[in-house]
Amino acid sequence: MTATISETLVDPTGKPADLSPFQRFVSDFCESKVAVAGAIGVLIVALIAVFAPWISPTNPYDLATVDIMDSRLAPGKQMMSGVTAVVGTDGMGRDMLSSMFYGLRISLTVGAMSGFIALMVGVCVGLTAAYFGGRVDTLIMRVVDLQLSFPAILIALVLLATLGKGVDKIIIALIVVQWAYFARTVRGTALVERRKEYIEAAACLALSHRRIVFKHLLPNCLPPLIVVGTVQIANAISLEATLSFLGIGLPVTEPSLGLLISNGFEYMLSGKYWISIYPGIVLLFTIVSINLVGDRLRDVLNPRLER
C-alpha cells in the first residue's frame, strides 16, 4: 500500500519524491540559470559588504590617509600614497573602489535592516488583523490601504523632512514605508489559512491565541513573506539610494552608493564620469541580482500574492 502511494507521488518533472521540501525548493530554484546567476550576484555583493574593511585598498573614512591632491584621478592612476586607484578617485581624493565597498556595506545594511524590521512589524500587525478580524481588521486595513495609496517616495520624503538626516532616521523612514506591504501580504495569506479546519481544530483544543498564531498561522505565511521580503529589500536599497541622491538621506560622512553617485554627478558634465558611473553600476548590479532571485522565488514558492 505504502509502495503504491509513493510511486504515485513522483511528480511530472520526474524528480524523486523522497527529497526534503528544502532540497526540492533548491532544485526547483536552480532550474533557472538566470536566477542562479542572480543568487551568485547577491552572494558576491553580500561578501563584499561584509568584508569591506579587509578587502578595500584604503580606508575612505580615515581622513588622515585622504589627500586632496588625489582628487578626481582617472581610473588606473596612482595616488600619493602609492596605491593605484583602479576606478579613479572622487572629488575629495578618496579611492573610489574603497568608497564603493564601504558604500555597498551601508546600502545593504540599510536595505536589509529596514526590510527585516518592517517585516517584523508587518507580520505582527497583519496577523493581528487576520486573527481577530472584525473592527480591528477593518481599522488596520484602512490604514494600510491609505498608506499604500501614497507613493513610497513621498512618505519617505515627508518623514525625512521632519526627522533629518542619518542612518537611523533613514532606516525608520524605510520601515514606515514598507511595513504596510508585509502587513497586507500576511493578512491575505493568514485569512485564507484561518478558515481552514486545522485552525478550528487548534481552537477547539483550547490552545492559546499566541500558540495558534505563531505555531500554526505564521509558518503558512512564510512563502509569500520571503518573496515580498526579497523584493522589498531591493526596493529599499533603491529608495535609499534615491533619497541619498536627493541629499535628504544619509549624511556626507557615511556615503552610501546613492550619495557617491550624487557626489559624482556634479563632475559628470566636465567628463569625469567614473565618480558617478562605477557606484551606479554596483547599485544596478545589486538591485538586478536581488530582483532576479525574487522573481524566481515567486515562481517557485508560488504564493497567493495579493497584488
Partner: peptide, 29 residues
C-alpha cells in the same frame, strides 16, 4: 519593461544626461 521597473530612475536620468548631453551633445543636460 522589467528594467524600467527595477532600475532607480535617478540613475537612468544620469545615464541619459551622460549619453545625450555629455557624449553626444545633442540635448541640453
Amino acid at each position: 519593461s522589467i528594467l524600467g521597473f527595477s532600475l532607480p530612475s535617478f540613475w537612468v536620468g544620469i545615464m541619459f544626461i551622460m549619453f545625450f548631453a555629455v557624449i553626444l551633445g545633442v540635448l541640453p543636460s
